[in-house]
Each structure stands twice: as C-alpha cells, then as structure tokens.
C-alpha cells in the first residue's frame, strides 16, 4: 500500500470537491478498495472517507418505488422489510454474495463499483489491460475459467463480480449521482461499460461523481422471481454464472419477463430482445430454452470458460422454471 492523505467529508458537496483532486478516491465499506490497495492494484494518493455523510436511508419514493441510500449497507438492504417484501429478488441476490461480515461493511454504492476478480488483474506482476492499459491481457491466452463469454473485447475478458447488480439490472434501477456539474440519473443498463478498447473503465461514473442513491421503480416482481447462482463452492465464492429471473404471469402466460446474467460479462448481461420472445408465451421449458439460446447468441469462450455458454443456457431455463413455480 502506498502512502495517501486522508480526509473525512461530512456532506456531498465537500466529497465532490475532495474527490476532484488528482489521485483521490472515495472510501466507504472499503471491502474491495483496501483489498486492492494492499496488493497495489489500486493506489489512490488521497482517500475521502464518505461514511459520515447521511446517505444510508432506505425509503419509499413518491413514484411508488424505493430509494436505497448509497451508503446503506448490503446487509441492511437485504434484510430491510421493504426490500424483503417488495423486491425479494434483490434481497436474495445480495445474500448470495460475499459473507455476513462483508455484507455488514459493504455499501450499496460500493457494490456497484466493485472491480473484477480476474486472476491477472489481482497480480501486478502479470500483464493486464484493465490495471495497466496497453500491457496486454494475460487471461485471453491464459487461465480464464471465471471470465467473460459475452461482450468481451480483444483487450479484456473480465467479468463484473457483483450479485446485487444483476438483480438491480433486472429491476431496472436508476443510479443517482452528483458531480461538479450537478446531479444526474443513470439508467442501470448504462451504468457499467463493456471493455472495448477502454478496459480500465468499469463504469460511466465520472471521476468527480459520487453515487448518492439507487432508485427502484414500483414493479418488484415479488411473486415470480429467482436468483440462481452457480459457483465452485456452496457459499463465499463468486458466480461462474448467475441468473436473476423475474416474471409477471397471468395463469401460465408470461406478460413480462426479465432475465439478467451475472458472471458472464463486464456488466450484468441483459438482452431485451431475447426477453421479449417470452412475452405472451406460455411458461414452458421449450420456450425457456429458446430464450436461453437467444441470450447466448454470439457468446465466445476462451478455453477454460467454454462451459459457461451451455451452463448459462441451462441456468436460464432452471431460473425461469423456479420463478414460474415459486
């Protein structure tokens, strides 16, 4: 860990001012940032502690949805009555990630900003375009079991590691941010980026911006949902493939379907055109498989992760079955 200066911001405006200094970063839960600072993958020269800012409230919005304060803890969010009853998909997704200890520390805003767990990103003695642009991607020709099969580029095949974000994408959340130029709202689908030729950028959040809240619309799919996470051990592991599935059913006919994949791309992976295939269709295995095929169109494996293509298809079918039968 390299030396850094440290300040605590009491309000959003100060935080935005402070983070505008070159080399500055916010710290809140710290669960990923300190992890990375210790191995020199991230090395801010100035840390702005934002935990004193009053941004931890979870409340209903006028639009009938809810607003998650950016500093609400993952655990408090997952166990919040409003979330458990109206957005159980989100609750389940959060609880599928990390551990009780980490969820007690990690914040909702920070969860969005998690970095990839790619083996090479985590080892400064190996080339990695995300960590050191232009140094090359070790994973494409190397070990890539955990890595992406969709939306990859020749520069990077990292995945976004969050479970929570997969559910937020399915629920069409909006991310509210404040920067030097004021406030703006970013639809969840536009929050994270694909690697393209700028793999060092994970999201479209600007360096001077702070996430203030995450807003969920009224529709919570509390009746037919599932978060299915497949991993290499039963708990405390990142997803090989995960699926957030939410259905609105009328009898056995699907009115609306939401399907988002985790563990397969640089962002939660949603294909609205493929989702639309289910609209007005019966909730059958055959129809689910059709959607699954459509979702994985264009998927490309890199050797060790080839299996994810078939696994993701089967996971989609299983998740939709579970959501239907719940």
């Amino acid at each position: 860990m390299r030396p850094f200066t440290f300040t605590q911001a009491q309000d959003v405006d100060t935080a935005v001012q402070e983070v505008s200094l070159e080399g500055a970063k916010f710290v809140a839960g710290g669960t990923n940032l300190l992890d990375l600072m210790k191995i020199d993958v991230m090395s801010p020269s100035h840390l702005v502690d934002i935990t004193q800012i009053a941004l931890e409230t979870i409340e209903e919005t006028e639009a009938g949805g809810i607003r998650l304060g950016a500093l609400a803890k993952n655990a408090d969010t997952a166990y919040h009555e409003l979330v458990e009853t109206r957005y159980p998909l989100l609750s389940h997704a959060i609880l599928a990630g990390a551990t009780a200890q980490l969820r007690n520390m990690a914040t909702d805003g920070g969860n969005l900003l998690q970095r990839t767990r790619c083996y090479y990103f985590y080892d400064t003695q190996t080339p990695c375009n995300k960590r050191e642009p232009g140094s090359g991607c070790s994973a494409i020709q190397g070990y890539n079991r955990d890595l992406a099969i969709l939306g990859t580029s020749e520069h990077c095949i990292a995945t976004h590691p969050s479970d929570m974000c997969v559910a937020l994408a399915a629920l069409e959340a909006t991310v509210h941010v404040t920067g030097k130029n004021g406030e703006r709202a970013i639809p969840f689908a536009d929050f994270h980026r694909l690697p393209g030729d700028t793999p060092h950028l994970d999201s479209n959040l600007q360096p001077d911006e702070i996430i203030t809240s995450i807003e969920l619309p009224a529709k919570g799919f509390a009746k037919h949902y599932t978060y299915l996470k497949l991993r290499d051990r039963a708990s405390y592991a990142f997803a090989l493939v995960s699926v957030a599935a939410a259905l609105e059913l009328e009898g056995d006919t699907i009115k609306e379907a939401r399907i988002v994949l985790g563990g397969v791309a640089h962002k939660p992976w949603r294909v609205p055109e493929a989702e639309a295939l289910l609209q007005g269709q019966k909730a059958t295995r055959d129809n689910f498989r059709k959607v699954a095929e459509a979702y994985l169109q264009g998927a490309q494996g890199f050797g060790h992760n080839d299996f994810k293509i078939e696994l993701a298809k089967r996971a989609i079918v299983r998740a939709l079955e579970q959501a239907t039968n719940r």
């Binding site: 985590y122 080892d123 190996t126 070790s138 039963a234 708990s235």
Partner: peptide
C-alpha cells in the same frame, strides 16, 4: 505462459466452507 500459480489467494483457491 507465465509459469506462475494464478489461484494464489483464498478467493481463487477454494477451501471448503461451512455450507459445503
């Protein structure tokens, strides 16, 4: 390619946990 162990932490080297 690198001649290097890459699963070199307890996130990437999976030891059984209680849930297993």
């Amino acid at each position: 390619n690198l001649g290097r162990f890459m699963t070199h932490d307890l996130d990437k080297y999976h030891l059984p946990v209680s849930a297993d």
